[in-house]
Design a protein around this nucleic acid. Structure first.
Lengths: 342, 342
DNA sequence: ATGAAAGCGCTAACAT
DNA sequence: ATGTTAGCGCTTTCAT
């Protein structure tokens, strides 16, 4: 049988309530007593019983909020599916999960939703952040003042007090893309990088990883100067056209950001769709079709569903007294998709 | 607030105990009353509270057993890690997880362990099965007579009453291998299939998927008659040698089963290790090294950790009243590993 | 066949 | 500052 607070109470010669206050730092207790109790608990290897904790507090403390920005994108829709599944599971334990979707990126609305959640008594929030100073401040305030745990999904805000980050390691995924490109491009083929913007940390990291991998292991391949399409299909198509005029013998394209459809359309127009190898990210929307047709050769997938699911489950565990399970960074798998494992 | 048995009891004009007997088919109740109660529960959309269920029965009903065969292989060691992590989580809910490892495949020992678990009051068992008639019979008996839920890990026993199967879709993984091979082999290269034995269902399925994919999408590639190495490194090396004598211009090798090290050693001996493309399964042990060195180009991974973890968690959910979450087949991701996403 | 009540481990409101 | 106690929702004995 596992150790219970009653046993600790007996050993310490105090009541259950006192043990509870000590172990959960609720105050209203003499510090030295608290220390002694914590000592005993540690000695006994006490682990709180999550079922009991969930049962006794379900209706107030087990409230979780989720805020998804850019909810209209296929990627975030998959995140949403994960959170919905997790919601069901948490609610089976008597908890409550509130999910709010934000169209596009809208920090003001995000902040407003956070505050609404706080009013509603939410004890943990998982959110898709944008790099914003006020958001960072608010997160710290929520964590420190209101003792609300916060998890960042998909992109991180490292210099905050957030509990952890769940998402992909962008640099690593760029390296994977580089390795694949190296394998499928024969000889000294020329490869183009089509990126988003230089402000976007994730795509810059991908680019860096891609370059590192090719440089170290496939130095025979010539990588051209990156071009930036600002996540726009039309711009992406145009940049590709320009590149093709300069470099008619282009062998491969690595797309770090949005704009894949523009690339594919242009390739089709030039009847190059099976000759030039394409590696992209994000296994949603049209990309899926283009992968199936063989225009895109590989897609590196972020396991978005897992990001949504685990962010909620991690908060659930935290609120039930289980410490962070994967540490500060929870990097989800880099899944390689080909036409055959759609 | 969610619906509770108390509310159902009030509505039905009976006691909580009666509702409990009705909803859990415990007998000792008038059938018509049971039906009526079930009707009310359904109408109200009653979902049992898992926390409460776990708390009230933790010490007798929340016992789970795990039996791992071939526990000495790197693959099963990863499965084991998953079960150990799940064990911790279940035990935080007050449950108990017993893990038994079997060296090699040993049906007698497996059956013995199952019976031991039953004696100990275990209510759910996750096991790595072997295709054996007596085992199938025993599983059905456990499920029907003892009401013990059983989950098969890694390989399935379809014609039994097991709750579900957690593992990989072998045919699909063979197709993925085919697609990758198609991408990295230029022109009309010749490809060899090195399989396990014709009795092994999983490897035969992989072979079938591989052939289908190449035939449909890369008909330019010539696939040679499969050879069988019976999971032996030495035999695999020898078969490769023979093949190389017949086919000096061999371009690729697909290894569906064990024996990868034998292949890699032979390739090195002939100084062909970077010229002939190799795709293998199982991302454990020496394969990892050979992938890193570039001798193996791709490894298709079964997410063994997930198999171990989810099999236990699925039983946990089942025992807490949550119905099977992924249906009868829970196919884990086919993860492609390259040197860059080790 | 059904009801009543104790208890699982923990929290929180109320006493002292 | 500490103790007491009533739940949380469900299961399980023990009565009836």
């Amino acid at each position: 049988m596992a150790v219970t607070i009653q046993q600790i109470a007996d050993l310490a010669g105090v009541s259950r309530g006192t043990v509870d206050r000590a172990l959960n730092n609720r105050g209203r207790i003499r510090p030295e007593v608290a220390e002694r109790i914590k000592g005993i608990a540690k000695e006994l290897g006490y682990q709180p019983n999550m079922a009991a904790k969930a049962l006794s507090t379900a209706n107030h403390a087990l409230q979780i909020g989720v805020i998804i920005q850019y909810a209209e994108t296929p990627f975030m829709k998959a995140v949403l599916e994960g959170t919905e599944f997790a919601k069901e599971e948490v609610e089976r334990f008597g908890g409550h999960v509130f999910v709010e979707c934000i169209h596009g990126g809208d920090v003001k609305k995000l902040l407003k939703t956070m505050k609404d959640f706080r009013e509603a008594g939410v004890k943990g929030i998982a959110l898709v952040p944008t790099d914003d100073e006020l958001l960072k401040k608010t997160i710290n305030e929520f964590v420190e003042k209101d003792r609300i745990s916060i998890i960042t999904i998909n992109s991180d805000l490292e210099d905050t007090k957030r509990l952890c980050f769940i998402g992909q390691d962008s640099y690593a995924s760029g390296r994977v893309a580089g390795g694949l490109m190296g394998e499928i491009i024969p000889g000294d083929g020329k490869v183009m990088i089509l990126s988003g913007s230089q402000e976007n940390v994730a795509t810059m990291e991908r680019t860096r990883g891609f370059l590192d991998e090719l440089e170290h292991h496939y130095s025979r391949i010539k990588v051209l100067e990156p071009r930036y399409a600002y996540d726009d299909d039309w711009v992406a198509g145009k940049l590709l056209k320009e590149q093709l005029e300069e470099t008619p013998d282009l062998a491969g394209i690595y797309i770090t950001a949005q704009g894949e459809s523009g690339v594919c359309d242009t390739l089709k127009k030039y009847r190059l769709e099976k000759k030039i190898k394409v590696i992209a990210h994000d296994y949603e929307g049209e990309n899926r079709e283009n992968l199936k047709k063989g225009i895109i050769n590989f897609i590196l997938r972020q396991n978005s569903y897992v990001q949504g699911y685990e962010s909620v489950m991690e908060l659930f565990h935290t609120l039930c007294g289980n410490p962070t399970r994967q540490g500060e960074f929870w990097h989800t798998d880099i899944v390689i998709k080909t036409r055959c494992n759609l």
